[in-house]
Amino acid sequence: MRIENHPILGTFHEGGQMVTFTLDGKEMQGYEGEPIAAALRAAGVMTHRHTLKRDEPRGVFCAIGRCTDCVMIVDGKPNIRTCITPLKAGMKVQTQYGIKAKE
């Protein structure tokens, strides 16, 4: 959920541009320039990838590009840290399985 009005910080994304991107082919919306992970969390998406050996789900952990738990396939490129990669219109985001997209 997005924070509409914050007692200290006021509003976020004033004048920000909403753009469309896709997650596993499904159309979604987010603010241009915010981290992909922020747009996904606002849309209620928790799982960013599944591990190779045990197929366990993983999502955001550190949110500052350090832990690499939130990596996904972005525009065909795997292992993209979604918590620090800015969202752009038309981005193709895919859940990562091991180091690939689902066949």
């Binding site: 924070i3 509003t11 976020f12």
Partner: peptide, 11 residues
Amino acid sequence: AAQTMMNLHGV
């Protein structure tokens, strides 16, 4: 991470 999401990105 909680701080980053809520205070920086408003989520």
